[in-house]
């Protein structure tokens, strides 16, 4: 971050002594103290718990006094069939999201941009944005109501027109499409905002000269609108890749059930189940640490890769 040293001292160009400067800013430090205390207390201090990843946790000993066991948990982790299955699910779902969910707001923004009637456009936007503000618990309540096998409106209509009812919720084959579909429903509309902002920044003259050159709407979209969104797309792609091992806990945790666990269990649900519900704190801390380190590597790796290809990264 480029910093200019602004010298308030009237003694031209002479830096005030460091301590004096600190003293003159004392009220600002005072203001920052509560926030930093909170960050230290609730983000930095818990980091000491990470040592559990290398320890065998004994409740009577507490975290500090529990014995070290080196990389034991990580060895178990990487040789456990259940974890490898969970890791595979996580990566597959994340890739599925990149393929099915990620392009949806881009496409939607392009189409919204083509709407001519402003009132209509605004109304549509209001409707598309709404689910973003509701929690996945609320969304799950709605999804279960609508897709229920016996009473859901979708299956009622299928039955009414003589088709067999479909099991949407307790069906391993339907689970991932359900995840992608409901993710689009909840967030594709809101996701358009950042792309629409990019589109709004386009110089109208570009379009005008393109029209004069005889470019039709498809060509204008391809050669003007899409390139203008490239930067936003790249940044969001990096951030998505950096969250590869997250795969959307809030959504999956509320939509999963025992029947869909085999295809839907991801690292975070696994950590919750084994850690909070079964009390295996040491092992699940190792799983969490593994995930966190891996995510960081992916984030910086993707950022690096983007720079190699000549784009601007975000760090």
């Amino acid at each position: 971050m480029a910093e200019e040293q602004v010298v308030l001292d009237p003694g031209v160009g002479r830096r005030p002594p460091r301590l004096k400067s600190v003293w003159s800013h004392r009220y600002l430090y005072l203001m920052a103290i509560p926030g930093f205390v909170s960050v230290i207390l609730f983000v930095y201090v818990p980091l000491y718990g990470l040592q559990l990843a290398f320890k065998r946790f004994r409740l009577i000993d507490g975290i500090w006094a529990s014995p070290w066991i080196g990389l034991h948990h990580f060895r178990i982790l990487l040789s456990s069939a259940s974890f490898l299955q969970v890791l595979r699910n996580t990566i597959e779902i994340s890739i599925g999201r990149l393929i099915f969910t990620f392009p949806a707001p881009i496409l939607l923004a392009l189409l919204l941009n083509e709407l001519r009637n402003r009132t209509f456009k605004r109304t549509v936007q209001s409707i598309l944005y709404l689910p973003h503000f509701l929690s996945w618990v609320i969304m799950a309540g709605i999804i279960f109501n609508v897709l229920s096998l016996r009473t859901g409106v979708v299956n009622n209509v299928l039955a009414e027109i003589g088709l067999p009812r479909i099991m949407f919720l307790g069906n391993p084959r339907a689970f991932r499409p359900l995840i992608y579909g409901s993710a689009i429903w909840k967030s594709a509309g809101w996701g358009t905002i950042i792309y629409l902002a990019a589109i709004a920044g386009i110089d109208p003259q570009l379009y005008e000269s393109a029209i004069i050159d005889g470019a039709n709407r498809l060509r204008r979209a391809l050669h003007i609108t899409i390139p203008s969104m490239a930067y936003a797309i790249v940044i969001l792609l990096i951030l998505n890749i950096g969250n590869m091992l997250d795969a959307g806990f809030d959504q999956i945790f509320n939509l999963i059930n025992p029947a869909t666990q085999s295809v839907g269990d991801i690292i975070d649900t696994y950590v919750y189940r084994l850690g909070i519900a079964e009390g295996r704190y040491d092992f699940t801390t190792a799983v969490g640490l593994f995930k966190n380190v891996f995510n960081c590597l992916l984030l910086f790796g993707a950022n690096r890769l983007v720079k190699v290809f000549g784009h601007e990264g975000f760090i």
Binding site: F42, V43, L50
Partner: peptide
């Protein structure tokens, strides 16, 4: 923004 203790350490804390 990039790193946190994760679910279990924060929970125990």
């Amino acid at each position: 923004m990039f790193f946190s203790g994760g679910l279990i350490p924060v929970y125990l804390w």
